[in-house]
Amino acid sequence: MLENKLVHIFASMFLKNFIEDVGRYFTLMGMVFRRPDNGKVYWEAFVRDIYALGVKSLGLVCIISIFVGAVVTIQTALNLENPIIPKYYIAIATRESIILEFSPTMISLILAGKVGSNIASTLGTMRVSEQIDALEVMGIKSASYLILPKIAATLIFNPILITLSMFLGVVGGYFAGSMTGMVSTTEFVEGLQMDYRPFYIVYALIKTVIFAFIITSVSSYYGYFVKGGAVEVGENSTKAVVASSLILILANYLITQLLLG
């Protein structure tokens, strides 16, 4: 009896918080997508955000993509030891794994950690140090000025990062295959060209754009509404990464079902 009551209390609390969060998130998005006060100043913020959120992630994305591409090739080769199966299947499997899932989803999850925490902590610090209040007092639409350029920057730059990741993942696989002798360069290139479906690239890029929006908007939500001090900024940064990662995984399933299912 008591257990049931407790479960009921916790469930209703969770539901109340969830509905409140969703409502405030959409209210914030309404504030974000307003006409900019001054296009030139927004442009400057956009360029700064392209650098901070996009260009600064290049190194990490490149290194991870090359090595994961290599690992995928090696693992696929180890699992396809049957002499009846042609070696070029290793390249096909590597290509499909990287284009369909690794680059758009895994790299986006990594970016949710890197970019998401950056956005949430930056906005959170601005909130607790009254910089957001300062913008409001000046008559600036703070939500729009701070978040819109970030969303635009990631929507534009993340597809570039993911395209680069796809290319480098395949390159990593190519070199790993040839260096270990598991698949020759000729077979690998043959496999890459076989049964190639350009729509997979479109699918991956659609996913990337949606994920970029999720990462930036959800992290901005957690940063913009921070209350308290340094501890709360840290807590909300963690919440931002967890929430955007979970929503991203859910969205990944829905998009895949819609476009490929």
């Binding site: 140090s129 009254e130 008559g139």
Partner: peptide
């Protein structure tokens, strides 16, 4: 708001 100026306790300069 364009007629208001504000000096915040912690200065609130943009980092």
């Amino acid at each position: 708001r364009l007629e208001l100026g504000m000096v915040f306790q912690g200065s609130a300069l943009f980092d």
